[in-house]
Amino acid sequence: MTIPLTWYLILSGSLFTIGAVGVLVRRNALVILMSIELMLNAVNLAFVTFSRQHESMDGQIFVFFIMTVAAAEAAVGLAIVVALFKNKSTINVDDINIMKW
């Protein structure tokens, strides 16, 4: 007995939702970056599911590229957080409003 692939898509959707809520709810810049990683992972799961559904390898190649982008994003994002902490000694995104009019 195999699992219907729709279940995987629902799982992916719930993971994406949790990530999106995390970005909106939390104020800690590090946790916001982690929530973004959650959303990227949800998209990866959807890609692999559709790759299985269509019996094609293209989805898995795309996951490979998404991982590349996620690694680059994490590196640059964390560098920004470190630079921000050095300058303003906070990573609470509510306190970082120097670019707000």
Binding site: A79, V82, F85
Partner: peptide, 14 residues
């Protein structure tokens, strides 16, 4: 590009 960007950002912060 990401490596260079991260390096420059971290250096400027220091």
């Amino acid at each position: 590009a990401a490596t260079i960007g991260a390096l420059i950002l971290a250096k400027k912060g220091l």
